[in-house]
Write a protein that binds this DNA or RNA. Structure first.
Lengths: 121, 121
DNA sequence: TAATAATTTCGATAGTACTGGAAATATCGT
DNA sequence: ACGATATTTCCAGTACTATCGAAATTATTA
């Protein structure tokens, strides 16, 4: 599911996360878990105008860090853990001169969601 | 050594790496290992004008991803693994809803340098 | 099918980032 | 102190990114 993850994908993901509002947005969706959140709820949580939020959502979707799905009138957004794992994996492999520096046991969505439910502060 | 690593540090590091030339530059310095590389050598390796390279180097230094040290006439740049570990650690802790998804055994500089020497392609 | 609701797209503006040549700074050898 | 070397800083031009109100789009309900 993570598939290829080349430098362009990494740059795209890094750039998408390298913004105050978008990092907060992604973390919010990670906390929200597999159910995701509607755009309106996100806008309210982050105190952002709809148009600004939409801009940032599109940015994260373009980088494949989040996914969009329509549920009746609302557009629900969910975090894409596969891309996040790809990013972290790339960084780990490239922070140690080609050697992976930590066991590459990345997070699987099912496990994540259960952990998340137990561990939300 | 990694110390505190808050959202601002993360955004700073992400932004610094989110550029074609700077990502290539950082990877080059990781491969170069603890001996680092002189600015001129980097410029030649990446085919960048000195002024452009200097701009990117300053960006990475500001984010503490690399360090500068003068060795006679040359300024030597080396990768700062502590910051990289802080970044990866933050992402791992925040990609799974607050639970760390991989054992947090990050890379230590000494180990890195030996691994790097064995593993450079 | 008209009214309503949720969200995006448009457009204008402001700010920030990238690039590269030329001038300035720092170090070394003679 | 001078000339050569290594690198940065300065500058200006260009391009990209962010913001947010208002209009347009899409889907639902009556």
């Amino acid at each position: 599911m993570a598939g290829k993850f080349d430098a362009d994908d990494v740059i795209s993901a890094l750039g998408a996360l390298a913004h105050e509002n978008r990092l907060a947005l992604f973390r919010l969706l990670v906390q929200a878990g597999p159910d995701g959140m509607a755009a309106g709820a996100i806008a309210e949580a982050l105190c952002l105008p709809n148009s600004s939020l939409s801009f940032h959502l599109a940015h994260l979707v373009r980088a494949r860090l989040i996914q969009q799905e329509r549920r009746s009138r609302s557009l629900i957004y969910t975090a894409d853990y596969g891309t996040m794992n790809g990013l972290v994996g790339y960084l780990m492999e490239n922070c140690c001169g080609g050697a992976t520096c930590a066991p590459a046991a990345l997070c699987k969505p099912e496990i994540i969601s259960r952990q998340a439910k137990r561990n939300v502060a």
